[in-house]
Design a protein around this nucleic acid. Structure first.
Lengths: 194, 194
DNA sequence: TTGCTATAGTATCGAGTCGATACTATAGCG
DNA sequence: CGCTATAGTATCGACTCGATACTATAGCAA
């Protein structure tokens, strides 16, 4: 029988460690006012751009069904952390926004202990690990036939410094992008490299 | 506002990536016959040693309550993947063992896509990442006041090559350990370094 | 205009999860 | 023999989450 802790099976070890770390975070988060799915949604809404602040985009991001996400949003709205707003342009789109309370709730994010654990790694390691995990995420999403969901800056529709005042531009949505926008998650993201 | 994707906030990014990877695995695992907790239990039972194949140890490992774990075990037993056996020495200890079907179920572990993603990383990276994640796990467990749960070989009670035929020895439980034992997870594990 | 179809989102339901609580039974100690 | 600690189970209830069914709007086509 193969021993999953052998050096040869290090990928299996990595996968299992990821699963365990996440499990510990969830276990720890249990005495929070929010559940894991709600925290995930809150984090997403903090970082998505104005093209992606919708229930549908959130559902794709979380790999959950629209119905499930709708319930999560109901809970977050009930708690006053998220506001739903009608889209001025389209009658069937709902725009999501964090409330002030929602933003400040993120200061109590149960992911913080994990982030602290990451911060205490040896100096150069955080970069390597972040890049490795990112690569794994892309891999996994590709294998699942999902959209990659990256930030505008790394998208093939991103046009850097297209203009003076408003430095960037999205060639897909034909919208100007501020420097701030460029670092936000977009549901339309397509990586530069084909 | 700080942008969580800045280089300065790389630890937060790492934490979030771990959470997302795990979420994708869980989402993918949904059309499996087993749920995430059951997979976690199966994985543990494949790799724990003979001192740690009990519901209590599993509960500590999963950071779950005994009641929850008991239910998980009920489900696994009902599905014929795990067998509960009375301990011959103690009437209040239950020993857990994977059945043949349980062992072969692990070939369909939904963690495998993630492991494959880890395997396709650049050569030297897997080692670094595995070590980094291990360090994070220890950190997190220490912060939560939990037992570390490592393999015998790295335990302070482990005596290497204590004997000829049975090479190793556990100084805590006063039991001989085979080479195979040395790589198994033990609930009594205490790291060498204090 | 009138369909037709696709899409965004919601409501409802039911199987299942998981912690809390309470319980039984054994171990171990005096 | 109690007494207490521990291993494990049963039960309950709040909640999760996907499946299904539904409403409503958008967009296209004739």
């Amino acid at each position: 029988m193969t021993d999953r802790f052998d050096a040869a099976d290090r990928p299996a070890l990595i996968a299992e460690l990821i699963e365990r770390l996440s499990r510990l975070v969830r276990a720890q988060a249990h005495d929070t006012a929010l559940n894991p799915a709600q925290w995930d949604a809150l984090r997403y809404l903090e970082r998505c751009n104005r093209f992606s602040n919708t229930p549908g985009a959130l559902a794709r991001y979380l790999a959950a069904t629209k119905g499930t996400v709708s319930q999560t949003l109901n809970a977050l709205e009930r708690k006053g952390l998220v506001a739903r707003q009608d889209d001025p342009l389209s009658g069937r789109v709902v725009r999501l926004a964090l409330t002030r309370a929602g933003r400040s709730a993120l200061n109590r994010d149960p992911l913080q202990p994990l982030a602290r654990a990451a911060a205490s790694l040896a100096g150069g390691e955080t970069r390597r690990i972040a890049e490795g995990l990112l690569a794994m995420l892309s891999d996994l999403q590709r294998a699942n036939g999902q959209r990659p969901f990256g930030v505008c800056r790394t998208c093939r529709h991103f046009r850097k410094d297209a203009d003076g005042g408003n430095p960037h531009f999205c060639a897909l949505l034909r919208e100007r992008l501020s420097e701030h926008d460029a670092g936000r998650i977009c549901a339309e993201h397509e990586p530069v490299a084909a």
